[in-house]
Design a protein around this nucleic acid. Structure first.
Lengths: 138, 138
DNA sequence: CTGCTTGCAAATCTTTTGCATTGAA
DNA sequence: TTCAATGCAAAAGATTTGCAAGCAG
């Protein structure tokens, strides 16, 4: 079995969830992709997995940390979480709408952790989106 | 006229928008509040402004920068934008769901600007949410 | 086998639209 | 007066649910 699928299987098992055909298809639709809307994922699974099942599986994936939900512009989008590809943030162009990754920044991460601590808050995760103009549009 | 309402009036005028009764009511529902869901805003305006008008006015407010939309946990929420209260970010407790403000952090802001620049990206805005456990819940 | 998942259809909830009326300038 | 904004009702879109049948363990 390809290695990422194996990781999916293990993660599901650990949380007492089944490793089903539908979930493998949905997972595949998310792999190596920029964040997608629910609509896009449903389309990607068209004919293979029912709309309702996509919603149900996505909910499971989110609960057990396989995927994460982001706000990109107006609507939320979904992508595999940090365990399945490196932690990162996004740049969104207000003009062309393109979303690109920001390289990981150790200093930024440390700063965020410090800020949370200063509020007696235990940071478990965070999301950052920078909006503006990409090189092509400015 | 109270000063924030006056600012609303001026902002609307500048963009060629009308300063109407409904918009004042919706604006009032957002003032001095933590970010709210659309549903909460509609409830706050119940009997005074129709659902459809709330959606329409919120869209106008967002277009002209009076409010901003944030991802807080699963759903988006809305709050007045930085021109109407200081720029800030949020901490969201994964346990009790409470959202609190993070004090402004000059160093963080500079870091974000630098990151955007390093990608040849002109930053126009950004959103940050830190998730974790608040003091009470940890 | 046995219970968790799925597909399908229907129910709900959220957001948008058409249109006649009202209100701001 | 004049056109944009509003309320209301209905349409469209997104998400959830009930239930019988199918599949994983």
């Amino acid at each position: 079995m390809p290695e990422p699928l194996e990781q999916l299987r293990v993660t599901l098992k650990q949380r007492g969830q089944s490793f089903t055909k539908a979930r493998q298809i949905i997972f595949a639709a998310l792999q190596d992709k920029e964040p997608q809307t629910m609509h896009e994922i449903i389309l990607a699974c068209r004919g293979k997995v029912d709309r309702a099942s996509v919603y149900r599986s996505i909910a499971v994936f989110e609960q057990i940390g396989i995927i994460q939900r982001l706000q990109i512009g107006w609507k939320y989008k979904l992508e595999l979480s940090d365990s399945f590809h490196n932690h990162h943030h996004h740049l969104t162009c207000n003009n062309c709408g393109k979303t690109t990754r920001l390289p990981e920044d150790e200093q930024l991460e440390r700063r965020l952790d410090g800020l949370a601590r200063s509020q007696n808050f235990v940071m478990q995760g965070h999301q950052l989106e920078i909006q503006g103009r990409c090189q092509d549009c400015s």
